[in-house]
Amino acid sequence: MHKTGPQSRHRLPFRWSFRAACVAFFAFSVFIFVPVAFAQDSFGQPSQEPPNEERFVYKLTPDVPITTSSGVQNLSAIWHEKPVLLTMIFSRCARVCSPFLRSLNSAVSDAGGLGTDYRIVVLSFDPKDTLADMQRLASELGLNADPDWTFGVASPSDIRSLAAATGFWFQWDSSTQQFDHASLVVAIDRGQLVRMLAGPSVPAASLREVVQELRGKFVASYALAGQVAFRCFEYDPTSGRYSLDWGLALMLLPGTCAILATAWVFFLLPASRKKRNLI
């Protein structure tokens, strides 16, 4: 029976309690789930822009100790011998890491210079990865026997300082049980970062440019808007190679024409052919 009147006032506290509970629940939702909703972005997709090379170029790389199949050594022990291409992955990666390393390997084969101009160091940023995990990964990629590829691990704090200095970032995504991370390889020469290649794969042309830079040369020309006619040597960014262009022919043309014109005057002109008082 629905009672009204003073007796119904005794039911108000329950209604109000219910409303209060709804408001409290709503407030809880707002204050708890909204930040979580914003934080949702950092789980679902990369939270940072691709790193800009110019922010890191020529900066010193921290000389951290790494554990490899040769034991514990500082990174500088490697880059003092040869420049280093450094990349970071993790062994449980189900997405981009293996394809990335395969494309790096392919680009290295194409560009050349491995062992003579540089060596490659692959580190894991996953604190759970062990040296055995990295060696297994190397074996899966067929790189465990290659002396110019070094797979290793380092302490989490060293990895963090290395990542901060070289543009790597990584973030745990518990929904996928994977790390979201940057795909990049950096070139380190004598402890300084000189180039950075970002992207899910490593184009051979880009790597060729990086190798050139490690050799002390760099590509000085860039494409002007519109068609550029007649350079002496044309750089093709898609292949990373120089080729002779018509500009070189134009540079040789003046001398060639002078020789031909002289020959014409001295040998072919009728007046020259029948010389008077030829002496």
Binding site: E54, D189, G216
Partner: peptide
């Protein structure tokens, strides 16, 4: 000319255009 055996500590990006130079830490 830049030599292979030396590495700079800093890069500055420069553009010349009629009639001023712009210098920057970023491209």
């Amino acid at each position: 000319y830049p030599k292979a055996n030396e590495l700079p500590g800093k890069v500055v990006f420069v553009v010349g255009k009629q009639f001023s130079f712009a210098l920057s830490d970023t491209p």
